[in-house]
Write a protein that binds this DNA or RNA. Structure first.
Lengths: 245, 245
DNA sequence: GCATATTTGTCCGTATGTATA
DNA sequence: CTATACATACGGACAAATATG
């Protein structure tokens, strides 16, 4: 997750004028934001399942905070689409439906393909960005070798985030973080994480190779195929799960 | 603004499972959201200028609401990037800098060009979307004829929103709404709104014509040139304004 | 359908911490 | 350095909506 790159206010350092002053404040967060961090981890690691209600009373008791503070944290996570706020009923862990998955991949196709297509040569302009992509590929390969498929999934999210980061846009990076967090909600319901991630490890390596050769459009073709396949896999799984219930 | 299309929770109807139940709740909003609506209007119409602080005390007194409720509204608007939240200092109306403008246009180029390029024929698949684009063009032409340049600016925002809406993605639509609101913050500092909008009215008409002919790539070329020019104009204005101060 | 219990929505008062003149 | 103003966070209270029996 690129979340660590964000500052206290959710903005990226480049957005601010006073960089030095910003760095000084980097470690400081409000209680609500720290609470949101805790809850976000619980949600993305599956401790809270999609559809679960987070009652104000239980969470305030567990974390020893006031209701007002917790409600601010809820707002933050609702904006990240990890929680849904139902008026007078409370907040619930977001449930991703097939329509959401289709839209997430629609957006990813637009953003990732645009970013990758712009790579048209082997100039050093892309070198730092491609280094991040390469690191993600290596991490995925390493995790796959060790059979750590959850870790491979994380590396895969990093890989795609690094691809869109080639565009150099703070707003796009932030959006990709949100989409990645949403997708984790789905990944967590998948029974066989290995089958989900294994095929994509070598394909990511191929995409990287094209980019390193300065062939953005070629990489775009592979990437589009990748995204279509990944979307189909998730949608089939969701349909199967719905039949079971 | 496409804001009217959004439901209480900020999600689009298509995101939810129970559409009927959703419609029932469409009119209902929390106090915090109604407060956010009021403040949003005040910000986008310029009553609050960029950089202004919105102190909790003055706003709670004016609107007769509690600080807790106001703080929830602040969170909403901070997420829309209309306010910036500075820890222990309060909330301020967002000030857009050149770096922001460059990024906004970078994102717009990616989204709008992708959406437009996908139009490859004259099939009815695009007809409803293109009708919305056409309406925006007509509204802009009508406003220009009457010399209502602020209105023409609004129609221009609608035009571009309608272009990206061709992609059919709720998430992209929402993102464009946010970018549009941010851009209004800049538009409002421009001294000559006529010079800003007038040249683009006929260019929008041209883009529409290409799309109606099923020539998405052709429209994309015109659109890219449009966005480059608009970005340059805004950046030059911001630079000039900075010199004045 | 009704009455009750539970939970959220909203407000207030206050104590503490932080920034700025 | 002090004083002032303001934001942060807490806890209690009651109203309003919802869920449950």
């Amino acid at each position: 997750m690129g979340r660590t790159a964000r500052t206290v206010n959710g903005a990226y350092p480049a957005d601010e004028q006073g960089l030095a002053a910003d760095r000084e404040r980097l470690g400081r967060t409000s209680t609500a934001e720290r609470v949101a961090d805790v809850l976000r981890d619980r949600i993305t690691d599956g401790s809270y399942a999609p559809g679960d209600q987070l009652s104000e009373e239980s969470v305030t008791a567990a974390l020893e905070i006031s209701r007002n503070t917790l409600r601010e944290a809820f707002r933050l996570l609702a904006h990240e689409r990890l929680l849904v706020h139902k008026l007078n009923r409370g907040v619930f862990v977001r449930e991703i439906n097939p329509h959401d998955v289709a839209d997430i991949y629609r957006v990813r196709r637009m953003l990732e393909c645009s970013a990758v297509r712009a790579v048209t040569d082997t100039s050093p302009r892309w070198s730092t960005g491609l280094a991040a992509v390469a690191r993600a590929v290596e991490n995925a390969e390493d995790a796959a070798k060790r059979g750590a498929w959850a870790e491979a999934g994380t590396a895969d999210v990093h890989f795609h985030r690094a691809l869109t980061a080639l565009a150099g846009s703070p707003r796009i990076n932030e959006l990709m973080d949100l989409l990645g967090a949403e997708l984790r909600l789905v990944f967590h319901t998948m029974p066989d994480v290995r089958a989900l991630h294994e095929p994509y490890v070598p394909r990511n390596r191929e995409i990287l190779a094209r980019l390193q050769a300065g062939d953005g459009p070629g990489a775009e073709g592979l990437l589009a195929a990748y995204l279509d396949d990944a979307e189909s896999t998730l949608l089939e799984h969701l349909a199967a799960e719905r039949r079971d219930q």
